[in-house]
Design a binder for these strands. Structure first.
Lengths: 321, 321
DNA sequence: CTGAAAGCGCTTACAG
DNA sequence: CTGAAAGCGCTTACAG
């Protein structure tokens, strides 16, 4: 008696359930929405009727009536190759999907590559088609965040959004401390000439991880030598290039802290090409704790911690709130 | 005058547009749906009114009325770690999202890990919440395909679904020919002891790529030696293990055709550990043409072709069809 | 606790 | 070409 989508049999509605249960549609609806003000007997009747008819709520009708969409957007505002290449992205996407599914909230995946996309999507999102937005972007000056914020759209950013007048809630890795842990690990293993390949230094992930690195060196009584530091962009290729620069400037390197696992892969490639063994000659530590890293040939050493920061103005709230 | 989602100002409706344009709601709606039976003058008036009011269609209302949802599900029915690790997955996901966006069709991402998930999602999907399903799963005996098919849900599978009573449309790589190209390339480069690491041999991706490999060897007058063939599961780790087996059985190997880029990474790792240079001592060719591969240290050699196969019973159709 | 009824915003025959 | 009106399936005050 299941309802078939493409309509052989008309899908059962709340009306059918009501008739079957011998109650009014209002009662069925109340049962569906928490069962408040529904007698136990009526509740049982409705439940049975739902089972018999194979009723499934029509979400469009519900949304029209309530004004909620009961869905959330996962918005990528990027030159997307970067993010799709990033193993963190998958972890994030999976985690969001799974947890929303638990609340019966579908995840709409949206990509904004061009400015035209950005405008179109901002319009779409603020038109009430979703109840909230998870914003994922690597460059944190993203205008979309500000626009969505201005339109009053509930929003959580992944990564600390910089230079944003209106503050937004965000979730980010504890960059400084994660870096500290990893560099500390290298020091404890006896490494003394520890280089670093940073992320872009105009982003918190770049500066904060560098800060953690410097701190630990200082604490360990090791010199901070700028010849040992090179900047990358988190991509694999940039890691490879940065490693070459580092090797030229400091051939006696015995370890490198790399600000992303993806760059770390490039670093390992480069070191192999230069005939250095890893970690024999040079230890390599990558930031991210990504699946890629845990599976990579020299196994991982780090596990960054995560912290949730809610801005005072816009506390994280559930879409259903 | 933009409509704000969380309701400071009530979002403008078709009604507001009609009033503003001096026409009826029916005319506005007709304009919105292709502009048939709308005079040029009325069309202009409506267009202007839409701009002035900042009107955006309420999709829930539209869906309730039309019975269409104008959305498509991207369904992953897997032990998901596997797929999320697979670089092909991202390519697929991005391509689908981008192309659907062009038709204003949002992509709902859904993951089915457990059987409970599978039941829940099948129910959700067949309840008419989406117009069609893109089914992504690696083991092709997936029961979900059959269920969705039986419920009359428009469906396209990624990869050839095996052993499915009801045939479904699918899109798949041209496994045999892609393999042929790559192995031919290795032969042309003068390699003579070419090994292969296959995918699971109970799937077309496993058997067909192996078939392509055998064919080219035969054509090139090279012997087919089972000692040179090992089976993997497409994962990185399995590539590493298979490479070790191969090296033990055939130390004089001078090339390996690997049935996935991910396994190929594992192979390269293993070869390095055994002190073999790549591609100096041993050439490695991976199937997939994934970003990972194109960026990897020994650069790529292959580019599999794609073929679209529509089953006779269920021709691929657009959700709007 | 329960029912009758209005209303959410749109589309679509149906008359003109 | 255009308007008036019914209808999509649900929720939610409002009376009882």
């Amino acid at each position: 008696m299941t309802a078939h989508a493409n309509g052989r049999r008309r899908a059962p509605t709340i009306h059918d359930v009501a008739r079957e249960a011998g109650v009014s549609r209002g009662t069925v609806s109340r049962f569906l929405n928490g069962g408040h003000h529904v007698s136990p007997a009526a509740g049982r009747a409705v439940q049975a009727a739902i089972r018999r008819t194979g009723y499934v709520v029509n979400r469009h009708a519900r949304s029209l009536s309530t004004g909620r969409s009961d869905s959330v957007a996962f918005l990528l505002t990027e030159p997307q190759e970067k993010l799709f290449e990033d193993p963190n992205f998958n972890v994030l996407l999976r985690g969001c999907t799974e947890n929303l599914a638990r609340h019966d909230i579908p995840l709409l995946l949206m990509l904004a590559a061009s400015d035209a996309d950005r405008r179109r999507l901002t319009r779409y999102l603020t038109a009430g088609h979703v109840d909230g937005v998870l914003l994922v972007s690597s460059h944190s000056g993203d205008p979309v965040a500000a626009e969505l914020r201005a339109a009053g759209m509930p929003l959580v950013a992944c990564g600390k959004p910089m230079g944003l007048g209106a503050r937004v809630s965000y979730v980010a890795a504890d960059d400084r401390d994660g870096a500290r842990e990893l560099v500390r690990h290298l020091v404890d293993r006896g490494r003394r000439r520890i280089g670093m390949i940073t992320g872009p230094l105009d982003l918190p992930g770049g500066t904060d991880r560098l800060a953690g690195y410097r701190e630990v060196l200082t604490e360990a009584g090791l010199p901070y030598d700028t010849a040992l530091v090179a900047e990358g962009d988190y991509g694999r290729a940039s890691g490879e290039r940065a490693a070459c620069r580092l090797l030229r400037r400091a051939p006696n390197l015995d370890a490198v802290f790399v600000a992303s696992d993806l760059m770390a892969q490039g670093v390992v490639n480069a070191l192999h090409q230069y005939g250095r063994s890893v970690p024999g000659d040079i230890a390599v530590g990558g930031f991210d704790d990504s699946p890629t890293a845990t599976a990579a040939s020299p196994s991982r050493a780090s596990a960054p911690r995560w912290s949730v920061c809610s801005s005072p103005r816009s506390p994280a709230r559930t879409p259903r709130g």
